[in-house]
């Protein structure tokens, strides 16, 4: 990793119940492709699927 300045993928929380993930975050990379996933919780409907579903979707593709 030492020689790689930019990450390929970045994920961070958005509020308390969601995560924003960007694929192709580096300036010279293809993309960016952005995804919102939800964190199951007792208070709100999730605005995106749980993260595991994103992995299964990738498996399907």
């Amino acid at each position: 990793m030492a020689e790689q300045i930019h990450p390929n993928i970045v994920a961070r929380t958005v509020g308390r119940e969601s995560v924003l993930t960007v694929v192709g975050a580096a300036p010279d990379a293809r993309g960016p492709w952005s995804f919102i996933t939800g964190i199951p919780n007792p208070g709100f409907d999730m605005v995106g699927p749980p993260a595991q579903y994103l992995s299964v979707a990738a498996w399907a593709a």
Binding site: N8, G24, W33, I39, Q52, L54, S55, A58, W59, A61
Partner: peptide, 29 residues
């Protein structure tokens, strides 16, 4: 609904990076 696959124009996320996106999101969650 999301799209994934391989295209010359790069409109959609390739499956392997898309899978890692799920992993990164899962880690943060």
């Amino acid at each position: 609904t999301i799209l994934g696959g391989h295209s010359s124009e790069g409109w959609v996320t390739p499956p392997f990076p898309l899978g890692h996106a799920g992993w990164a999101a899962s880690t943060v969650s």
